[in-house]
Write a protein that binds this DNA or RNA. Structure first.
Lengths: 160, 160
DNA sequence: GAAAATAGTTGCATTTGTCCACTATCCGTC
DNA sequence: GACGGATAGTGGACAAATGCAACTATTTTC
């Protein structure tokens, strides 16, 4: 008997139309779930909620003196949003600002002791969370995905 | 001459640490850019901004009588957020609700003429946007990505 | 030296989602 | 059939994040 034409009541039966073959759809949808999951794992850590804090923390930890405008490009936000994000992190004493000697318009960011310790913890959490969340993806596929998406990310970050 | 240790000033020089191999990082970052780009392409279309409206529109168009709670799972949101999203779309006369005859707690959603026309337009826009945005990805890689991410998406949608 | 570009900040408005409680209804079981 | 427990949808309150545009201070360009 062919499937009946009555209203679908199970998720599995649903036809998602052209979205079935639309990469942006999967990126956007999976983003919601993976971000929520990550927030749970970071609960209470000064670095939870929203994109950018983690990246900023690791960036400042690994690239002493990095500037807000560079971070803005890497976290795909504008300078104003980035500035506020840095404000927060400075309030939490994860990093501090200094005016650049070369260019007094610019700032240089440096990690604090507390920030460095948090960075250490976060590295583990983030890596583990991603691998666990995508645990239905084989190692090989995982590597493949990353290689492809890295290119896209680099392109975006470079041009913004 | 080895790279100097002075503050990095170009995006290309930056080391993004463990995020370099973290899939969730790429998903989250690319999401920001692809969503912004899509919003531009949908400018003024009753369906712009935020995830979910497009999916809901296509879902209702292709699955007459579908219920809000099913949509909630597919757009990865809770029922409350989904309800409000449907409110908006009903105000815009893209769809309408009816109480299910089977279960008077539940609703069935149906597309309107206007909604159907918009769905037609949106199918083209969305498909094109995704393919253009990821135009640096080969067809083969594209197919691969989709096959893998589809599994992840299905798993998420099924369990939420 | 003037004009144009760049770094960062701030105000403003908007959007968006989350949490939680509440009602109505349905389902299974005793 | 009646009761307890799940399920569907709604509404309120709230917190945050983000983007845009305007503005200052510097630096760079020609």
């Amino acid at each position: 008997m062919p499937p009946t034409k009555v209203p679908p009541t199970s998720v599995k039966d649903i036809d998602i139309d052209v979205l079935e073959d639309t990469l942006s759809f999967y990126i956007r949808s999976i983003n919601l779930a993976v971000s929520r999951d990550l927030d749970e794992k970071l609960e209470g850590l000064d670095v939870a909620r929203g994109t950018g804090k983690i990246t900023t923390l690791l960036l400042v930890d690994g690239n002493p003196g990095i500037r807000p405008s560079i971070i803005a490009k890497l976290i795909i936000k504008d300078r104003s949003a980035t500035g506020r994000l840095i404000d927060q992190m400075e309030e939490h004493e994860l990093l501090f600002r200094e005016t650049s000697a070369d260019d007094s318009r610019a700032q240089e960011l440096y990690i604090t002791e507390k920030g460095h310790e948090l960075a250490e913890r976060v590295r583990g959490i983030v890596t583990r969370q991603s691998r666990e969340f995508f645990s239905d993806i084989s190692d090989e596929e995982h590597k493949l995905l990353i290689d492809i998406l890295r290119r896209t990310y680099r392109r975006i970050a470079a041009q913004s």
